[in-house]
Structures are given as structure tokens and as C-alpha cells.
Design a binder for these strands. Structure first.
Lengths: 199, 199
DNA sequence: GTCTATATACCGATAGAC
DNA sequence: GTCTATCGGTATATAGAC
């Protein structure tokens, strides 16, 4: 066997592990999926796992690349400068639709990330850091609004985190075959955030 | 020793376990706190734990009574019929302030409940059930609004869950000594939800 | 690189003496 | 009711053959 072939086999194993993990994370969640479950589902041995990943968390980070690529792709389709006016219905709707769509399309990974975040030591501050980082774009749009002299209903970081929290937790909790369609969710939250209850 | 005294000692042990658990849940979270950690912190033996609780989850349910009592108490101060107009700034603010205050004052228990909920099998549907139940009051207020012929920006259950998700996850993530005061948070979310971004 | 087999560690839960 | 001691199950990670 040439080195190239062996390398290809290794890549195949790595891909099989990632695939199996994604499936299992979606079915039973991240925390309830053991490393031996992943290797068994991938048809590999336990020991083989550690040739590719140091632990389960590192595998999750590798999966994370997928969802980030998907998000970047959807965002690259249109330019995304700071100068987005979230008080414009169409622009707010587009932002929520993309965020919700990515979370739902890669639900297994979102579930895994969410569980991993919440299982961490609460005192580590990771949850707030993650939430703040993942809503950085929303925050920048709000900061831009404020720089334009427009009234913003509170601290941009706080508002962005609140909106992100709403989407993330509802997406985590709402079953895939739940009672509401994606459109219902996006429309409801667009209305709620755009005009608020007193619109 | 009379039976009465022995009973009192038992109650003391039970209380010590609950106290120790609450402290540890606040420090390291629910998932990272082992039963032996609780008994050690309470100055009792491992075996003694099972005389009072079947497992860690049952202890959490016992702690849950505390937070529910606190919420009921704050709500009993004023009547809380369905006929609350959440499009009125003062009433919305009051609701958010109470919910946020209870979560922050009993942060250890909220952290524990949140971790317990998220650690469960995602396919169990528990997360959505919990979220929906805990926001039942908001939902009823919205349903009442709708019955009055007022426009509501989406399905009441969905909107209520979204608002609850925002509060719950931000409260979980935001450190107790974080960069924002309780007032800032409540005001920001009141503004956001009352008038929305386009207020 | 992949496998089998195992060391290591940990935690939940119980048995039995007091 | 509380204690000490321990069993039993389980998951991570490694060692060594192929």
C-alpha cells in the first residue's frame, strides 16, 4: 500500500467518525453519546478514535467547521457590512431567517454545541462569551444604528445577546417535527422584535 | 432519644444536604456536582443521602419548591388575572422584573434546572415542555389580548416561549458580577419587546 | 492506522454494623 | 438515622500486536 492510499483510508475513517457523531448527536444529544457509541456506529474500534481526535470536544470543534462554512456561504451570497438597518423589516427578517435556517439545517451540531456550552462550569463564563461572540454581527449593526444617531433600546451587546438567546434556546427546545413551521417562527420573531408587543 | 428528637435530627440532615447542594450548584453547577460532593460539604456520609432523596434529581425537585414559593409570593402580592395588557409599558416591565428578579435571586437553582433540562435527551421533548409551561402566564396574557381583538405578532405560545428563552438563557449565561445591572437588563428587554427595534 | 485487550478512574447505589 | 465499607457498572484513555 502506498502512503497516499493509507492517508486516504485515514481520511475515510475520520470522515466516518464525524458522520457517525453527527447522526448520534442529533438522535441522543452530545452528552449522552459516548465515544464508544461513535466508533461502533462508524464501524471502527475504540482505539482508532484517538488517532484522529484527542477527545469528544475536539471532534465537536471539527464538526463546528461545517456549520460555520454554511453560515459564511449564506452570508457571502450577499455582502454583510456593518451598515445594515435592523429596523427595516426586510433586513431584520433576512437576518433571522438565515440564523434560524442554519441552526435548523445543522440541528445536530447546534444541539451538541448547546449541550457542550451548558455542561461547562457556569463560573467559567463560557456561556456568556459564546453568546456574545455568536451575536457579534447583530451587535455591530446595532452599534452602527446608534452611531447614526438612531435610538437603540439598550446596550447593543445585551440586546444582541437577548435576540440570539431567544433563537438558540427555542431552536434547541423545539422538536424538528414540532407544531410550528420555520416560517411561522421567523415571522413571529421578526414581528416581535421589529415592532414589539406595542407595535 | 425520643422519636421527636430523632425526627428533628433527620430534618436537620435533610436541610444540611439541601443547603450544601444549593451552594455547590451555584459554584460548580448541577452536572459537575457529585452526590459525594454534597454529602461531604454537608458533613454527612454518602449513605445518609439516600435516606432523604432517591437521587440528585429528586433533591433538585425539592429545591425547586423554594423558587416556586418565591415566585408565588411575589405574584400573590398583586393579583395576576389573565387580563394583563403586556402592551402597557408598566405591566410588561413588572412582569419582566419579577421573572428576572426571581431567576437572579435563586441563581443556583436556576442554573441547576437549566443544566438538568439541557442534559436530558433532546428527543424527549422536555425542553420545549418546560419552556412552554414556564411561560404559560405570558401566553395567557397574549391570548387574552387576541380575544380582545388586538393584533398579536404571532402564535402566543411561540412568542411567550421566545421571551422566556431570552430571559432564561441570558440569565444563565450572564455572570452574577457581570457588566450589566439588573435594571439595565430589564429596561433593555422591556424596550426591545414593547416597541421592538423599530419603535 | 487499526485492531483487541486492558488499565485506570470514578461514581452511583447498597449492605450491614451501630 | 447515620455511619463505614464495598460492590457493580461504566467511560476514558492507553499498550502492544498486526
Amino acid at each position: 500500500m502506498t502512503p497516499g492510499v493509507r492517508k486516504a483510508k485515514a481520511a475515510q475513517t475520520r470522515a466516518a467518525l464525524l458522520d457517525a457523531a453527527r447522526t448520534l448527536f442529533g438522535e441522543r444529544g452530545y452528552l449522552n453519546t459516548k465515544i464508544t457509541d461513535i466508533t461502533a456506529a462508524a464501524g471502527r474500534s475504540t482505539g482508532s478514535f484517538y488517532e484522529h481526535f484527542a477527545d469528544k470536544e475536539e471532534l465537536l470543534r471539527a464538526l463546528l467547521g461545517d456549520i460555520e462554512d454554511a453560515a459564511d456561504e449564506r452570508l457571502a451570497a450577499r455582502e454583510h457590512p456593518r451598515e445594515h438597518d435592523l429596523t427595516d423589516r426586510a433586513q431584520l427578517h433576512a437576518h433571522l431567517e438565515i440564523a434560524w435556517g442554519v441552526m435548523r439545517q445543522h440541528r445536530a451540531i447546534q444541539v451538541a454545541m448547546f449541550q457542550s456550552m451548558v455542561a461547562d462550569d457556569p463560573a467559567s463564563g463560557r456561556a456568556w462569551r459564546d453568546l456574545s461572540e455568536q451575536t457579534g454581527m447583530l451587535r455591530e449593526h446595532l452599534e452602527w444604528l446608534r452611531e447614526q444617531g438612531r435610538a437603540v433600546p439598550g446596550e447593543p451587546e445585551l440586546l444582541a445577546a437577548g435576540m440570539g438567546a431567544m433563537l438558540a434556546l427555542v431552536s434547541y427546545a423545539l422538536p424538528p417535527d414540532g407544531p410550528y413551521t420555520d416560517e411561522q417562527v421567523v415571522d413571529a420573531f421578526t414581528n416581535l422584535l421589529l415592532k414589539g408587543l406595542a407595535g
